[in-house]
Amino acid sequence: MLKLQNISKNYENFCLNNISLEIEKGDYLVLLGKSGSGKSMLCEIIAGIRTPDSGNIYFKDRNITYENIQNRKIVMLFQDFALFPHFNVRQNIEFSLELQKKSKKEIKQIVDNLAVELDIENLINQPIQKLSGGEKQRVALARALAYNPEILLLDEPLSSIDVNNASSIRQLLKKISNNGITIIHVTHDYEDALILGNKVAVLNNGNLVQAGKIDEVFQHPKNEFIAGFIGIKNYFRAKFFVNEGLAYALTENNIKFYSTSTEKQGDGFVLIHSEDIIINTEMPHSSARNILKGEIIKIQKQKHGYEITVNVGVELYVQITKKSVFELDLHENKTVFISFKASAVKFLK
């Protein structure tokens, strides 16, 4: 649906090099990168706020590289929301509808529906200045959705929002995505990619390092940079339960991980950093809440130490030093016990 072809742009000592990327209708693409990686600039090029020095952008097979912003039907949500300060909430949402000369009745209906969907009914007549960050984000989303865009560009939508609100905005973004809108979400946070995205593109210093389905990129990072940046290979879809103050996650094939985060329940992701896992050759007696028996299926040398893949019902990646590999005489098919603390198990929702 949207195709970037060899996009390059030089701007104030910074350049975007030869970016090619393809997005299908309904995709949730997360553009992942550190600050200064060029992800926001790429976003602005897609929106039409900037034009690339070279390369082409195709939208539904039409070249829109130099098309006016107004004709793209691609709405961008800015990091600081960019709401119109002289309008109240309702007027902000109505803005694009009034430009389209829709009838008063129709406008009211659309705005009222969006207000319910985004849970801002009680704010509808408030001035913008009175809103919190999370509320502003909801209004900005409502304003964008009122325009009925083909693609929604989100520039760091969660960065100026506190943690509690961020989680509810994430749920909202999921819901919007499920309604079929194509979303491009710019962020520096890999957790956003994991929770929200179905595709991810990693940018570094103006270069596209790797792009693809979430699992492809996370499980098979192309190089050290991505592995280091994403830094997480042990993540599993799971259900979270809290039972008498004891929290645990159950993966899809019923492997149980104990956790200390008791505040969330329901569907989500379990995350365990491979550095936090210990390999034992015998059943350990320790304070670690998670002890699992498994079989080594792969030993791979890396820049720093080794990565051991252990099958405990799910495949867990473990980072250990070269010395440990030899001292414990680790080899493929060997049975081992792995252990890690409950606090090493993170739950994302």
């Binding site: 706020i49 960019a82 803005f95």
Partner: peptide
Amino acid sequence: PERIENAAYTLGATKWQTFFKISLPL
């Protein structure tokens, strides 16, 4: 802020509309 004008453009407003509805009132 130019961002506010850009926001109006991405919502389909022409330069004239943006000038008279956003920039001039602000």
